[in-house]
Design a protein around this nucleic acid. Structure first.
Length: 211
DNA sequence: GACCAGGTCCTTG
DNA sequence: CAAGGACATGGT
């Protein structure tokens, strides 16, 4: 089944490409992406945008500022994203990692993707999806993100590969470029947000109708 | 009021 | 290792 999984994914990628072409997704500089990646955990993006605005107003949109910030101020700025106490703590942990362990964002830009991923995963509150989002959208690495939508879509079109193998499958099928990873993930979210609810997903209709 | 959102961690069976 | 709960606000 694994040999044909690649074919299924290849097809899905092409159908989505035909449907959407190039679409903008996840704007912002590296530090804003890192912050947004934590804020968006289990939360709608519209709420994250409001929190990012609040952080910008208070001058808290950099790792250095977060490192120095009063925790209560940080919590207030991001309250609208939910889980605000926990997320404030996670932002602090990330800032400690970036500034004190990595020596700043600049240094991270010259670090290998594998080393960077390992480091990010060692931060309490950063799991695979958050780490991969940061690598793909913040550091522009050819690193594919598997999220709940991606998982839902591939199930719907009939794949049974375990979630932890999907990242490898997509990266094996896609060109080894950041643009390809970022674009395909954006396509999946775009489609899934509209057609794939938690209970009903219509990815299979898209894929079959265009075959 | 019920249900869900671009997860992660911790505890149980 | 799978399943379930905690974290919390905001939109439909």
């Amino acid at each position: 089944m694994s040999a044909s999984s690649s074919a299924e994914i290849r097809h899905l990628v092409r159908v989505l490409e035909d449907k959407y072409g190039t679409i903008p997704w996840w704007p912002g500089d590296c530090e804003e992406v890192m912050i947004g990646a934590i804020l968006t955990q289990q939360t709608r993006w519209e709420n994250v945008e409001r929190a990012l605005f609040e952080l910008n107003v208070r001058g808290l949109c950099t790792m250095q500022a977060i490192l120095a910030a009063d925790s209560h101020d940080l919590e207030n700025a991001i309250r609208c994203t939910g889980y605000y106490r926990m997320k404030a703590g996670r932002l602090k942990s990330l800032a400690v990692f970036v500034e004190e362990q990595c020596g700043g964002v600049k240094r991270m830009e010259t670090t290998s993707t594998g080393t960077l991923r390992e480091g990010l995963l060692s931060v309490h509150g950063i799991g695979e999806e958050t780490a991969d989002s940061i690598l793909c959208y913040g550091f522009s690495r050819p690193n594919f993100v598997i999220d709940a939508y991606t998982d839902r879509m591939v199930r719907c079109i009939g794949l049974t590969d375990p979630r932890n193998r999907l990242k490898g499958l997509f990266e094996q099928v896609l060109p080894k470029t950041n643009a390809a990873c970022r674009q395909t993930h954006a396509h999946i979210v775009e489609y899934a947000k509209e057609y794939c609810g938690k209970k009903r997903c219509e990815a299979c209709i898209l894929v079959n109708s265009n075959g």
